[in-house]
Write a protein that binds this DNA or RNA. Structure first.
Length: 803
DNA sequence: AGCACGCCGACT
DNA sequence: GTCGGCGTGCTC
């Protein structure tokens, strides 16, 4: 029985429309419409885009209630059945609309672009015809083209049925197509035709025989002509005789294929070999098995990944390899491409919409074996995955910070379960939650404790900055670190200096009254920018000149406080005038490719010191770096977040790993005001396991993750009173309906309470039973949307930051 | 989101 | 009396 009805998720992101709607599939679409295609459908008075998420032959709704699909937008499905079911899981998991999830899965080229046209269908005013329609019957309509009175008039004319508005749905990015021929697959018919062919019809015979050899296939006209060397005319005849039919296929831009040096397989050491065999074993037995690969920096995790991938290819399966965006460096890409050549797709943030679309198509068509990419690459349309790798699994960038707030690690595990394959989560400093799962046996723990090539872990010195500052003037450099810097400079060895700036920046403060200039919109301390000599708000972009007199007490002793990379660079220059310094921070790396250029320069020894923020902690590998300095270890300890210690430990461990990779031993100097803090002490000893145990005890005592689920409810409003009041109501409602064991904290203003002229409040929930809470949260979401007013509420499961 | 329907104030 | 203001609710 033919499927007559289609279930469509429409492109209307609201709570009330977050469900499939049923449409009639017109007779002429029955053959071509497939699950996962996009269509346009009438929805109320207009046309909208929608995704086909179901095809059914029966419906409870009566025919009069149903309307037919207007148009099919795709030649082939853009969402496969696996991703379709992933989308419904994710919609629940992230409290997002299904349509939002579906759009997130696809390159933005597939987003709908609604083009309106207005058309005169009855007598209208001469003025309107001339002034608005420029004497034409039909014009494109963009609301920005008209003022309010004109729009009001046009609306009126429409109500009087004097003009008509039509909407066409297009792709956001133009998809190029070319003429192609789809061969018939009716053997009997074709053979009959071949029999009945006139002897002189040699060309027709060639075509027919070719079709018989490629039954049902689709060939681009250009290619077919090249192969057969025949003219258009013959194919047109073939089309008339129904041997083949004309169709359109996509024309793909030639994928960029740079030549890469093949990389050699490295010999695995004992531990690597064991890890490799475990992963490959799970792959061979077709079993869903998450692994936590806990390997110290430099222990060769990547080689394990690559060889396991190689094994999976031999089974004709594909690999999904996720890395944090920051690790998606040309070096890393070169390494993978070198091993697997052109069958590698790389998805990174630098691609244009068109390029991203092309890579997506290559993956979707099965042209690639391995996809390397950051967070959003977890939706790569691979359909025969044999292995999923999540490198640096502790990285918070795997969690998207705005809607839909999905976690790529969870999705990786979901897809792994779907395909019954191994999923490898790798890190030197696993997230507490992953390490705890390994403890419980949910993940299998694989450990690498040896550095490749006999390299030793660097020695780490902790320096108490309280003492440094007690002895002398304000400075960013302790005596100890200063001595080391001079020493490296003399020896011609390189240094990496990290300024920990998480949630911290340089600002201006009055030394007499403590006044700090804040910007008028966000009420945040403004950041000092020496290059433009201004104060800027990091969040809204507000900018003003640096004051010379305190606005509060009139003192002229208002000056810089805190530290920025520029200031450190200046001090460094004073200290070591001869040292060549490269400064890397958000300002100097904003331009595309500038980060790579700087790293290359440093790698070529064109500088002695690399000074940067967190971004330099990850994945860089320079053999001549023998000294790493962390200027202020503790700014990340002071965050209003239970992850603060974990983040600090991870950061220190990561940055320490930059020292002494090759034969030369490395040294690390960590400056801090909290030398006794356990996160710093364990980082000094390179003792992840010790840190893990202590931090787990603290999490346990404080009822934090991974012992409890955490959910953050945040709301914003343009009026402070409103958001405070509404959130009090929400908290009250939750306390009324939630189980007694649910811990409800707040509401309280967020640490950054005002941003872009809106006030933010949050409520934190901690609980153990997920399902009951999920229902309640769905209900909350629904009510929040129905409630009128300017309140915006969002729910974030397992938030990675409370800022 | 958009769009229609519907119920109240100020106007040709 | 009608036009048009926006509040309310629905869209297969």
């Amino acid at each position: 029985m033919t499927k007559q009805f289609a279930q469509i998720i429409v492109d209307v992101p609201t709570m009330q429309t977050n469900q499939p709607y049923t449409y009639i599939v017109p007779q002429n679409m029955v053959d071509s419409l497939m699950l996962g295609m996009r269509v346009t459908v009438p929805f109320g008075a207009r046309q909208v885009m929608g995704f086909v998420v179901g095809l059914i032959s029966q419906t409870e709704l009566s025919e009069e209630q149903l309307r037919p699909i207007t148009k099919i937008l795709d030649l082939t499905p853009v969402i496969n059945t696996e991703l379709l079911s992933l989308s419904s899981y994710l919609a629940e998991e992230t409290f997002a609309f299904r349509i939002t999830i579906l759009q997130t899965m696809l390159p933005s080229a597939f987003k709908a672009n609604y083009e309106r046209t207005i058309k005169i269908i009855d007598e209208v005013d001469e003025d309107v015809r001339e002034r608005i329609f420029k004497g034409l019957d039909e014009i494109p309509f963009k609301s920005s083209d008209f003022n309010d009175t004109d729009i009001a008039m046009l609306l009126k004319l429409r109500r009087q049925h004097k003009i008509e508005v039509t909407i066409e749905v297009h792709n956001k990015v133009k998809i190029k197509t070319q003429l192609a021929y789809q061969f018939s697959n009716d053997i009997a018919f074709l053979e009959e035709e071949l029999e009945g062919l006139n002897k002189s019809a040699k060309k027709q015979k060639i075509v027919l025989q070719f079709i018989l050899g490629h039954l049902g296939e689709t060939w681009a006209k250009k290619e077919l002509q090249e192969v057969l060397g025949l003219s258009n005319e013959i194919f047109n005849q073939a089309a008339i005789k129904k041997w083949l039919k004309k169709t359109q296929v996509e024309l793909l831009r030639d994928p960029f294929r740079s030549e890469v040096q093949p990389t050699e397989l490295l010999k695995l050491n004992q531990q690597q070999q064991e890890a490799y065999e475990q992963v490959v074993g799970a792959s061979d037995t077709h079993k869903f098995q998450p692994f936590l690969l806990e390997g110290i920096t430099g222990s060769g995790k990547t080689e394990v990944y690559l060889q396991a991938a190689q094994h999976v290819f031999e089974q004709e399966k594909t690999v999904l390899f996720l890395v944090p965006e920051i690790a998606l460096t040309p070096q890393m890409v070169r390494r993978v491409k070198g091993r697997f050549g052109a069958q590698t797709a790389v998805l990174h943030s630098g691609l244009s919409d068109g390029e991203r679309y092309d890579e997506w198509r290559r993956i979707e068509r099965g042209d690639v074996k391995i996809v390397v990419g950051a967070r959003s690459a977890v939706f790569a349309p691979l359909d025969n995955i044999g292995l999923i790798i999540v490198d640096e699994e502790h990285e918070t960038t795997y969690k998207q910070s705005d809607n839909p707030r999905y976690d790529a690690r969870k999705i990786a595990l979901w897809r792994g379960d779907y395909y019954q394959i191994p999923v490898v989560l790798g890190s030197a400093t696993p997230s507490l939650e992953s390490r705890a799962r390994a403890q419980k046996g949910i993940y299998e723990l694989l450990t690498l404790t040896e550095r490749a090539g006999d390299a030793k872990l660097p020695s780490v010195q902790i320096i108490d900055m309280k003492e440094t500052l007690a002895q002398g003037p304000e400075t960013n450099f302790s005596n100890e670190l200063r001595i080391q810097l001079i020493d490296r400079l003399e020896k011609g060895e390189q240094t990496v200096l990290m300024l920990n700036r998480r949630g911290f920046s340089s600002f201006v403060m009055c030394r007499d009254c403590g006044y700090v200039p804040c910007d008028p919109n966000c009420n945040l301390a403004m950041t000092l920018h020496m290059d433009t000599h201004t104060l800027k708000c990091h969040y809204c972009g507000h900018e003003e000149s640096i004051p010379t007199v305190c606005a509060q007490c009139g003192s002229n002793r208002i000056r810089y406080y805190g530290t920025g990379t520029e200031k450190v660079e200046a001090e460094l220059h004073e200290l070591l005038p001869k040292a060549r310094v490269i400064r890397m921070d958000q300002d100097t790396t904003r331009k595309k490719g500038s980060m790579d250029r700087m790293l290359q320069k440093f790698g070529n020894h064109e500088a002695d010191i690399l000074l940067g923020t967190q971004m330099i902690a990850k994945g860089l590998d320079f053999p001549d770096v023998t000294l790493v300095g962390v200027l202020n270890a503790d700014t990340s300890l002071g965050l209003p977040d239970f992850h603060a210690s974990e983040r600090t430990f991870q950061l220190l461990t990561q940055v320490s790993g930059r020292a002494g990779r090759a034969q030369k031993p490395g040294e690390v100097f960590v400056q801090t005001f909290n030398p006794q803090h356990y996160a710093i002490a364990y980082a000094q000893k390179h003792d992840y396991e010790g840190f893990y145990r202590q931090e787990m005890a603290i999490r346990h005592a404080g009822n934090y993750a991974p012992y409890y689920y955490t959910v953050q409810i945040q709301a914003s409003h343009s009026e402070e009173n409103q958001v405070a009041m509404q959130m009090l109501k929400v908290a009250h409602w939750l306390r009324l309906h939630a189980d007694k064991n649910v811990i409800i904290l707040g509401p309280s203003p967020k640490p950054i309470a005002k941003m872009r002229k809106r006030y933010y409040f949050q409520i934190i929930l901690k609980f153990k039973q997920r399902h009951e809470m999920d229902k309640l949260l769905q209900e909350l979401q629904y009510r929040a949307q129905k409630a009128k007013g300017d309140l915006q509420l969002s729910i974030d499961r397992d938030p990675v930051s409370f800022m």
